[in-house]
Amino acid sequence: MPLVVVTRYRVPPGDEPTFRGRAREALDALRAQPGCRRGHVGRSIDDPQRWLLQTEWDTTGAYRRALSSYDVKLRAVPVMYHAIDEPTAYESLVEADENGLSEHASDRDPSAGTASPGRHGDR
């Protein structure tokens, strides 16, 4: 199932050129990883202090493996300084392209939000 990762950032005035360069480096490291379909760095047209780094992945596993890559850790960590602490990874349930809409079943385990070490779902 495709995965969309959206990380939002708050970048103070004056830090934009440095942030843009670091975000570019992070995107370049991510796009070189197996399973990365595409990505982009963007800035809000309504609030120039709000930026995002968005990537699309073939699978959740491809994304998680990419995060453990040395190159990604080295080149993406500097951009994380400005990251907003919130969920970033979203499974794609409906996609649209030139052929229309396509649906995907969720890969999320129903007990994913309740399981913890020593506890198995609703048991």
Rank of each mutant, 00 (worst) to 15 (best):
M1Q: 04
P2M: 14
L3D: 02
V4C: 02
V4N: 10
V5F: 02
V5N: 03
T7P: 01
T7L: 03
R8D: 08
R8L: 03
R8W: 02
R10E: 03
P12L: 00
P12D: 13
P12N: 08
P12F: 00
P12A: 08
G14D: 10
G14W: 02
G14T: 03
G14V: 00
D15L: 01
E16Y: 01
T18N: 09
R20K: 08
R22K: 10
R22L: 14
A23L: 07
A23Y: 00
R24V: 03
E25C: 00
E25T: 01
A26M: 02
L27K: 03
L27M: 08
L27T: 04
A29Y: 02
A29C: 08
A29S: 14
A29G: 07
L30F: 14
R31C: 09
R31S: 08
A32M: 10
Q33P: 05
Q33Y: 09
P34T: 11
G35N: 07
R37C: 07
R37K: 09
G39K: 03
G39F: 09
H40C: 13
H40Q: 11
V41L: 13
R43S: 12
R43H: 10
S44P: 13
D46R: 15
D47F: 10
P48A: 05
P48F: 11
Q49S: 12
R50H: 13
R50L: 13
W51H: 12
L52D: 13
L53M: 13
Q54I: 01
Q54Y: 03
T55P: 11
T55Y: 13
E56A: 04
E56L: 06
D58V: 15
D58K: 06
T60D: 04
A62Y: 11
Y63F: 14
R65Y: 06
R65F: 10
R65A: 12
L67Y: 12
L67P: 12
S68V: 10
S68M: 14
S69C: 01
S69E: 06
L74E: 05
A76M: 01
A76E: 05
P78Q: 09
P78R: 12
P78I: 11
P78K: 11
P78T: 05
V79N: 00
Y81F: 04
Y81T: 04
H82Q: 08
H82M: 07
A83I: 03
A83G: 07
A83N: 06
I84G: 07
D85G: 00
D85P: 04
D85C: 00
E86A: 00
E86R: 01
P87R: 10
P87N: 13
T88V: 04
T88M: 05
A89T: 03
A89C: 07
A89W: 05
A89M: 06
E91C: 07
E91L: 14
E91T: 09
S92V: 15
V94P: 00
D97F: 01
N99Q: 14
L101E: 11
S102V: 13
H104L: 12
H104S: 09
A105T: 07
A105L: 12
S106E: 12
D107C: 03
R108W: 14
R108P: 06
R108L: 10
D109V: 13
P110N: 15
S111V: 15
G113N: 05
G113Y: 09
T114G: 15
A115Y: 04
A115C: 08
P117D: 15
P117I: 15
P117V: 15
R119S: 09
R119T: 02
R119V: 07
R119K: 13
H120Y: 11
G121V: 11
G121D: 14
